[in-house]
Design a binder for these strands. Structure first.
Length: 664
DNA sequence: CGTCTCCAGGTTTTT
DNA sequence: CCTGGAGACG
């Protein structure tokens, strides 16, 4: 490898990239070439003879992990099969697959997503006799997560959730399942309980890098500390901390300074990404936050286009506007579609934009949205696969017991649950008992239904044992249970919906096919696939990103950049989100950071839309622009009002509105 | 006992 | 608008 590090990096970047020994804290402002530094730093380590397997790079989102490994591959021109670049959670899965037996779980454990977890929490609450009328399983889930990650204890358990929590924990273990928090928490437990396991990992990963360090939770920080000796490099920016709701804690920057007092600290402050117009806007906005490490980003890209603001009448018009303007700019500036990013605060906003893009034939790709894997029809199929992999997985077993309808309804499940309780065994074991033990009193009809259900599962359990032709087997499964017939009968008045759902299943199967045929895939087994999809929201493995507009939440866009950025739905109540503000005052600052992240994604042009009215739960609601807009210096803004009904007067009105909000 | 039908309620961001 | 749960029906 003959990389000229001096030519490729500025002095701060160079120092950061070539300091590979000892603890290093890099404060990297938006657009200051953070990914570049990490990429070159990795290349530098490889240059110096560090083996790939000794390097561990951790990120938060799959997108970031993917981006990072692609860039390293690109810079080094090497295949990097032994380099570990992953999210904290998928790294946790890797550890648990090797070590979880130490804690009493068995192989092929299930990873419960939000839906599974909520279901289990409901069951547990019912089990311990909690009053169900006023029970909020989502709230309980949040409390459980806080407890699990050490942010809360049961001392002030106003809701009386503690009992449910213990039931929940016991059930997870009985079902051989873990939840997302366990993916970090259980590895910590392994390392703290079994020092020899910890040593083995510490010996292997002699060089550790953490990206987006401001987003680490205390729990993740603990895991990182257990793993690392001294060659630890963390990269972060307190202004871009946007995950505090998930336990991210930028005090970790302070913890790091405390725990590694001999650390080196480097600040990257030169922004190469954005025009000064965009940067000035970003700086003005973020300056309204207290409590930040002051840093002024400087950019050599003087001037640049004004930031454009447009106030569409409705979300429909907003979509049309964005689609039209993308086409205009693409033509005029000779850009590709993939150089555009459309950012939104909440996934719910994607829908209209997608419709507009479809109508205008603008190719796009969405990240997030109701996760593909959480769609009902997809979850059904996956539940079958989970039960086949892990027979103790009661949550998924119950989910599919009567899907498609096979006579095992509510009452049957209740009876089975009684049996399971009586013999303290899993539902699956209870079913087996009912099948074989004819002395056990049970409705004969149901007994037969259970028998054929079990036979079906057993058949496919054998079927899936081999490691070949996964997708063919899944297709066979879907055919055998006549899932298509089920979809048709479930959606009798909506043939289109049935078809759409079936197409989703079809695309799931095709996804498996692509995945198992990937020559880089060293482990094309059912279980490896299940693990993988537990941690991703969307299967973009084979997706060809080129030539498509990126439609994404601001959270998911962090770390990415686009020539032209639209921030859609920039209304009060959306950014900042009303719900976030309800939770606490500190959240205004986090919402502002979110807006800051959105602005700083843009290289050349930034366009912001704020609807005057928007449909919410099928009801149109009047909207006012986001108060953050008033924090951008007026001189940087231009109101766009071309073809629409927006007159000069109305524009002035909108402005008065913004200022009025700013003043109050 | 299973299935069908209607109704209320609910949505921040991600792993 | 879409899902999940409760109650009626067969």
């Amino acid at each position: 490898m003959h990389l000229n590090y001096h030519a490729e990096l500025n002095p701060e970047q160079y120092e950061a990239a070539t300091t590979i020994e000892g603890p290093l804290l890099i404060i990297a402002g938006a657009g200051s070439g953070k990914t570049r530094v990490i990429t070159y730093r990795t290349a530098y380590m490889l240059d110096k003879g560090v083996p790939q397997s000794a390097i561990l790079a951790l990120t938060f989102t799959n997108k970031a992990a993917k981006e990072m490994s692609e860039r390293v591959r690109h810079v080094t021109g090497k295949k990097l099969q032994n380099l570990s670049v992953s999210t904290f959670h998928s790294f946790g899965v890797k550890i648990l697959r090797k070590e979880i037996q130490r804690l009493g779980w068995r192989d092929n454990f299930s990873i419960y997503d939000e839906v599974d977890r909520t279901q289990l929490i409901k069951d547990c609450a019912r089990e311990v006799g909690f009053r169900m009328d006023a029970f909020d399983p989502n709230k309980a889930g949040m409390v459980f997560s806080d407890v699990k990650t050490g942010r809360k204890d049961w001392v002030n358990d106003a809701d009386g959730y503690e009992k449910i929590y213990h039931e929940y924990q016991a059930a997870l273990k009985a079902y051989n399942a873990v939840d997302f928090d366990d993916l970090i928490g259980l590895p910590i437990r392994v390392f703290e309980t079994f020092p020899e396991a910890r040593e083995a990992y510490r010996d292997q990963f002699r060089f550790i890098m953490i990206d987006e360090f401001q987003d680490t939770s205390l729990q993740q920080y603990r895991l990182m500390r257990l793993l690392s000796r001294d060659n630890i490099c963390v990269v972060g920016d307190d202004d871009q901390s946007i995950y505090s709701w998930r336990g991210a804690n930028f005090e970790n920057i302070i913890n790091f300074e405390k725990d590694w007092p001999q650390r080196k600290e480097i600040t990257l402050y030169r922004n190469y990404r954005s025009t000064t117009t965009i940067l000035d806007a970003a700086n003005s906005v973020i300056q309204h936050n207290s409590n930040r490490k002051p840093k002024d980003l400087v950019s050599p890209n003087e001037g640049g286009a004004m930031i454009e603001i447009y106030a569409p009448e409705s979300e429909i018009e907003e979509g049309e506007f964005i689609a039209r303007v993308i086409k205009e700019i693409k033509l005029k500036d000779k850009l590709r579609y993939d150089q555009f990013g459309v950012l939104i605060r909440t996934n719910a906003l994607t829908r209209h934009l997608e419709e507009a893009f479809l109508a205008a034939q603008v190719p796009y790709r969405v990240t997030g949205g109701t996760s593909f894997f959480q769609r009902k029809e997809i979850k059904d199929v996956i539940s079958y696969l989970r039960v086949i992999a892990n027979p103790e997985d009661d949550v998924n077993l119950i989910r599919i017991a009567n899907v498609p309808r096979r006579g095992i309804g509510r009452r049957s499940l209740e009876l089975l649950s009684d049996v399971a309780k009586r013999y303290s065994c899993s539902m699956r074991a209870a079913m087996q008992r009912v099948r074989s033990d004819h002395d056990l009193e049970f409705p004969e009809r149901t007994r037969q239904d259970i028998d054929s259900f079990l036979s079906l599962l057993e058949f496919f359990r054998e079927e899936f044992k081999g490691r070949r032709n996964l997708s063919l087997k899944v297709r066979k499964l879907v055919d055998t249970i006549d899932y298509w017939g089920y979809l048709v009968s479930e959606n009798q008045h909506n043939e289109k919906a049935a078809k759409w759902k079936f197409l989703n299943v079809e695309s799931l199967i095709q996804g498996i096919d692509v995945w198992e045929k990937d020559p880089d895939n060293l482990e094309p087994t059912l279980y490896a696939w299940l693990n993988r999809i537990s941690l991703i929201t969307r299967d973009d493995q084979d997706e060809d990103d080129s030539g498509k507009v990126n439609l994404t939440t601001i959270h998911a866009a962090k770390g990415l950049e686009y020539d032209v950025v639209f921030i859609a739905g920039c209304e009060d109540g959306i950014i900042p989100h009303a719900r976030a503000l309800e939770e606490g005052d500190g959240n205004v600052e986090e919402e502002r950071r979110l807006f800051y992240v959105a602005i700083t994604r843009a290289r050349q042009r930034l366009l912001i839309t704020a609807c005057r009215r928007r449909r919410r739960n099928a009801m149109p609601v009047d909207c006012t622009p986001s108060p953050f807009l008033a924090e951008i210096p007026e001189a940087l803004l231009s109101w766009r009002e071309d073809e629409a009904a927006l007159t000069e007067d109305e524009a002035a009105d909108a402005w008065t509105q913004v200022h009025a909000m700013f003043d109050k």
